[in-house]
């Protein structure tokens, strides 16, 4: 018998698998397909203070071993999320969920967290300071250590729940930003968000995505994720939620060896709606294959 349990910021997970925000809706859509209580947790759709339509279509472009998206944080706004989406999630999911929060000003982050803090079912906050698809917010908070620390401190003041800051890979030095979040009182960091990319249509000679640029995700970005998780693990003492191109149980082990305590599965859910479940079901086999008795033991094992 292998042990897949891990502890993330004081909360035990049955396994380290967490579907990533933006690839899993509010969870209940997937509950039509399988019992989502098999998941470690899930990070629900990025929530902002006000409702957002997001960017015009096309929002999606295929790439070799991955995809670009520029959805632009479409969500019904925090009030409706609390009133209609989270109750639907609660009907089908009995574990603590991860609330993914975005904002365009410090006040917005604070107000959104303050509102969601009242929801008992939320186990962690994942503060997105790294969305590449919105202008004048999102990633602009995640590209300077000073701003990252400021956001962290501000949300720290309004919740006692664990705060995980989601970091952008579109920076010169992700380590300094992770350290700034730790300094600001973060309980963890999650990385990596998508890499900013672009594709151009040869037929129209214009970018395929209406927003021009989009966030690149999928198996192609996994080596970047592994490298950044490895570097951040060396520099901070708070847990890392790793993500980036995870498609199978072997990828989960690789990210954990780099330093991840839990692992988010993103784009894979869109190609195979059963991806997160399949990875969880396959974890014991891969653990046995590589002589791993407990996943907790291998966190940062590559260092």
């Amino acid at each position: 018998m292998v042990n897949t349990k891990v502890k993330l910021c004081g909360i035990e997970l049955d396994n380290p698998i967490i579907p990533a925000s933006g690839t899993f809706g509010f969870g209940y859509e997937f509950a039509e397909l399988y019992d989502i209580n098999i998941l470690g947790s899930l990070s629900f759709k990025g929530t902002t203070l006000e409702p957002r339509f997001g960017n015009p279509c096309p929002r999606i472009a295929e790439c070799d071993s991955g995809m670009l998206n520029a959805v632009g944080l479409q969500n019904p706004g925090v009030d409706k999320v609390i009133k209609t989406e989270l109750p639907k999630l609660r009907e089908v999911f009995r574990k603590p969920s991860m609330a993914n929060v975005s904002g365009f000003s410090l006040e917005e982050y604070v107000e959104t967290v303050r509102k969601l803090d009242t929801v008992e079912d939320i186990g962690w906050f994942e503060i997105n300071i790294s969305c590449p698809n919105v202008h004048g917010g999102g990633m602009s908070f995640g590209t300077s250590p000073k701003m990252a620390e400021t956001v962290t401190r501000a949300v720290r003041d309004v919740t006692k729940k664990p705060i995980i800051i989601k970091l952008s890979p579109n920076v010169t030095d992700i380590v300094s930003i992770a350290k700034a979040c730790e300094e600001g009182g973060a309980d963890g960091v999650s990385l990596i968000n998508t890499l900013m990319g672009m594709r151009i249509s040869l037929k129209t000679r214009r970018p395929i995505i209406a927003n021009k640029t989009g966030g690149f995700s999928g198996p192609a970005i996994k080596p970047v994720a592994v490298r950044m998780i490895y570097q951040v693990y060396d520099a901070v003492n708070i847990p890392i939620v790793g993500m980036g191109g995870v498609s199978n149980a072997e990828d989960v082990i690789e990210l954990m060896l780099a330093g991840a305590t839990a692992v988010e599965v993103g784009a894979a859910n869109l190609v195979n709606p059963y991806a997160s479940r399949d990875i969880i079901l396959d974890l014991p086999r891969v653990m046995e294959k590589y002589g791993i008795k407990s996943l907790e033991e291998i966190i940062g094992g590559a260092h």
Partner: peptide
């Protein structure tokens, strides 16, 4: 028709505005 990510409603990659909402 629209460019889609998942095809089953998870990614919000193909949303349009209608008089009845998004």
């Amino acid at each position: 028709e629209e460019r889609m990510g998942c095809g089953f409603g998870a990614c919000m990659g193909c949303t349009c505005k209608t008089k009845y909402g998004n």
